[in-house]
C-alpha cells in the first residue's frame, strides 16, 4: 500500500512536495486531502512542488488542473513549482498545456506569487 503525500502548513500556505513515485490512488487521495485541509486551515495558497517528479502523465496533469480549480472555489490560489524542462516539453506534446494552472520555476518564486496576492487584498485577484 502506498503512503499518502504529506501536506504541510506554513502560515497561510499549504505546501505539498511530491517525493514519491505517484500511483493513481495516491494522486486522488492528495486531491481530496488538499481540499479538506484548505477548508480546515483557512489557507489562502497552495504550493505543489514537483521538482522530484520525473513524469507527469494525463492523470497527474488532470489532478494538478483539478486541484487548482477546487482550491480557487475554496478561496485559495494554487501554484505548481519546480517543473522539469523535459516534463514541460512532454506535457505540451501530450496535449496538456495546463492553461488554468499557475506555475513558478522555484518554491521561492511560488511563495512570492502567493504573498503578492495576499498583500493585494480582495481586489487583487
Amino acid at each position: 500500500m502506498s503512503e499518502r503525500v504529506p501536506v504541510l502548513k506554513i502560515g497561510d500556505v499549504l505546501l505539498v512536495s511530491i517525493q514519491v513515485e505517484l500511483e493513481d490512488q495516491v494522486v486522488l487521495e492528495l486531491q481530496d486531502d488538499l481540499a479538506s485541509r484548505i477548508v480546515e486551515s483557512g489557507a489562502t495558497g497552495v504550493i505543489i512542488d514537483i521538482t522530484a517528479v520525473e513524469i507527469v502523465d494525463s492523470f497527474v496533469g488532470r489532478m494538478l488542473a483539478t486541484t487548482a480549480s477546487i482550491s480557487r472555489l475554496l478561496d485559495a490560489q494554487t501554484v505548481v513549482v519546480g517543473m522539469r524542462p523535459a516534463v514541460a516539453i512532454t506535457l505540451v506534446e501530450l496535449g496538456l498545456s495546463l492553461g488554468g494552472v499557475r506555475t513558478a520555476l522555484t518554491l521561492e518564486k511560488g511563495l512570492e506569487i502567493l504573498a503578492r496576492r495576499g498583500n493585494a487584498g480582495p481586489a487583487g485577484r
Binding site: 520525473e54 513524469i55 502523465d57 492523470f59 522539469r84 516539453i89
Partner: peptide, 17 residues
C-alpha cells in the same frame, strides 16, 4: 536523451493505465 526518456515513460504510463 532525458527528454526522450521522459516522453517514452509518459507514453508507457498512459498505455499501462
Amino acid at each position: 536523451s532525458l527528454v526522450d526518456q521522459t516522453k517514452l515513460v509518459t507514453a508507457a504510463s498512459e498505455l499501462a493505465r
